[in-house]
Simulated assay, not measured.
Amino acid sequence: MAEKRTVVVTGFEPFGEHAVNASWVAVKELEKLGLGQHVDLHISEVPVEYQAVQNLLPSLWKKYHPKLVVHVGVSGMATTVTLEKCGHNHGYSRRDNCSFYPESQCCMEGGPDCIHSVIDMDSVCKRVNSSGLGVTVSVSKDAGRYLCDYTYYTSLYLGQGRSAFVHVPPLGKPYSAEKLAQALRAVVLEMLELMEHNTEKHLCQHSQ
């Protein structure tokens, strides 16, 4: 019997012009769908505050020991479900919901400028786009230097790259919450599949 894998998926609270945050609405819909019987799914709403992120993320990693953490955020500019390849350490001068931003304008003083996910986002993108889901997925290298990027970098740092970030468009532009949840489900399952595959590859190399 396959061992159960734990996945944590987060969405954000409302901020700015997003009185309803599509990311959290989509994540709650994903919880209803579930990720199948072999995956334990836990969801969490992330405040749009730098200091809250610094407190919340280590506790999520510590509490659940997840195989993968997927953060979902909304982007007013997005028209597709967008997979982010990496998180950035510097450039955080936009004020959060508490009108605060880090004095150093960075996530982790002394940390690398950029951390990439261990997941090959191009592969995930191709697979989901060819699955006939009716939701377009794309890939990006810039998560926007705000709470999304900040959260992603922090999580990549804590999880040694076992994290992903997905930007979704606002609700109805063009997708419903249900459609976004289906896309998230497909994306997360592909990510897990790729991670399993990579572990097997590493094992094969060691055994030679």
Rank of each mutant, 00 (worst) to 15 (best):
66 P>I: 04
122 D>S: 13
39 V>D: 02
102 P>S: 11
172 G>K: 11
109 E>T: 08
131 S>E: 13
170 P>I: 06
9 V>Q: 14
128 V>N: 00
87 G>V: 02
13 E>L: 11
82 T>I: 04
30 L>K: 07
200 E>I: 00
163 S>Q: 10
205 Q>D: 11
62 K>A: 12
134 G>S: 06
115 I>L: 15
41 L>K: 04
125 C>H: 13
158 L>Q: 14
161 G>F: 07
44 S>K: 14
122 D>V: 10
22 A>Q: 02
70 V>D: 00
191 M>R: 02
176 S>F: 05
108 M>K: 07
164 A>W: 04
83 L>R: 02
188 V>I: 15
133 L>F: 06
99 S>M: 09
30 L>C: 07
57 L>F: 08
128 V>R: 01
131 S>T: 06
48 V>N: 01
82 T>D: 03
175 Y>K: 01
203 L>I: 12
105 Q>N: 06
179 K>I: 02
159 G>H: 01
70 V>K: 05
152 Y>T: 01
24 W>M: 08
59 S>C: 05
102 P>Y: 11
34 G>R: 14
192 L>M: 04
144 G>F: 13
144 G>P: 01
151 T>S: 15
160 Q>D: 14
17 E>R: 15
2 A>T: 13
129 N>E: 09
185 R>F: 02
156 L>Y: 05
117 S>R: 03
116 H>L: 14
117 S>D: 05
34 G>Y: 09
63 K>F: 09
50 Y>N: 06
123 S>T: 15
35 L>N: 12
65 H>W: 08
18 H>R: 08
173 K>C: 04
38 H>N: 14
167 H>E: 02
9 V>P: 06
129 N>C: 10
54 Q>S: 08
103 E>S: 11
2 A>H: 14
136 T>V: 13
15 F>P: 01
29 E>F: 05
66 P>A: 09
203 L>G: 03
120 D>E: 08
143 A>P: 11
135 V>C: 05
106 C>N: 08
151 T>H: 13
55 N>S: 10
68 L>K: 02
128 V>G: 01
